[in-house]
Design a binder for these strands. Structure first.
Length: 298
DNA sequence: AAGCGAACCTGGCTGC
DNA sequence: TGCAGCCAGGTTCGCT
């Protein structure tokens, strides 16, 4: 469940359980996820205090008293469940009876405040790494990463500058984490719909010849911010599994206007269009062919 | 260089 | 009921 709003939802859920607590025991139950765990993973965590829990794009960053940062990425199916001390593990099909570990519980963090944090990831596209605080900006995960869409950098001007001259479809440009980092398939579809932009329009069409942003570029920047912050407020989107660390669901999926709505009527008032699906670089794009017509040329 | 498709892995749903 | 086929919120690799 991992685009920016879901990761931010997880961060907010983990924060009270982890920040200010020490790792008393870390159980790493397999040698790798998408990548091998770093050397001596558990030993480097045990005894360390979590000073802060941050987020960059779709990555969670736990600042440790050792000076290292625990980097966590959820991939496609990664999720965290927090169990407070004394509680028996419950909600969710992933966790077998009373406190036992489920099939894909790969890491369990026990904390000095009595809480347990379990990382579950059926597909194992997620990963964890440990990097010195001083090397965070330049480490392989973040070097070359694009701007934060909820930060101050996102504007019509930056979109025009980043997209100018690119013939790649808008959909692909928005998914490119080297340009803007944190958007994924759902929120790109939703943002393009709200802006009335065709997903196959060339990314460069948002920059005028002068290099200045078009009106649509300004709108797109605002819409991206709106969609993401609305989704964060809703606790993210829940598609197949819980989005929040206490097992409860996000509910932004009820606000989807095009994502996963192929064949349904367009929600725009007066619009007679039907939501269509097309495949771009191997991924489903949902859009309204009537509302989203903007500049397919150039 | 940019832009596709495939690959990584498991599970859930659809349809025969 | 069983099984094949397709699809899934992400990222990276390798081939045009």
């Amino acid at each position: 469940m991992p685009e920016l709003p879901e990761v931010e939802t997880v961060r907010r859920g983990l924060e009270p359980a982890m920040v200010g607590a020490r790792f008393t025991k870390v159980m790493q139950r397999r040698p790798d996820l998408r990548f091998p765990f770093p050397e001596r993973f558990a030993e480097r965590l045990e005894g360390q205090e979590v000073r802060a829990l941050g987020r960059r794009a779709k990555y969670l960053l736990a600042d440790l008293s050792s000076g290292e940062v625990l980097i966590m990425h959820l991939g496609m199916s990664g999720r965290f469940l927090v169990t407070k001390g004394g509680e028996t593990r419950m909600p969710g099909e992933f966790h077998h009876e009373h406190g036992g570990l489920g099939a894909h519980d790969h890491v369990v963090f026990q904390l000095s405040n009595g809480a347990s944090v379990t990382y579950n990831d059926a597909r194992r596209f997620g990963f964890m790494d440990l990097v010195p605080r001083s090397e965070i900006e330049t480490c392989k995960h973040f070097a070359g990463m694009g701007i934060e869409p909820l930060g101050n950098e996102l504007s019509g001007e930056t979109i025009a500058a980043l997209f100018a001259g690119r013939r790649t479809p808008l959909k692909a440009a928005l998914l490119d984490q080297r340009l803007i980092a944190g958007l994924g398939n759902i929120y790109v579809c939703e943002a393009l719909f709200r802006t009335g932009l065709h997903p196959e329009a060339p990314a460069g069409s948002l920059a005028a010849k002068s290099g200045k942003p078009t009106e649509k570029a300004h709108q797109l920047a605002e819409v991206i911010r709106d969609v993401l912050s609305e989704a964060v407020t809703a606790g993210g989107s829940t598609l197949r599994d819980h989005a929040q660390v206490d097992g409860s669901l996000g509910y932004f999926q009820h606000s989807f206007r095009v994502y996963d709505r192929e064949g349904e009527p367009c929600v725009t008032p007066q619009c007679t269009g039907t939501v269509s699906r097309l495949v771009q670089s191997g991924r489903s794009t949902f859009y309204c062919p009537v509302c989203q017509k903007a500049s397919r040329t150039r």
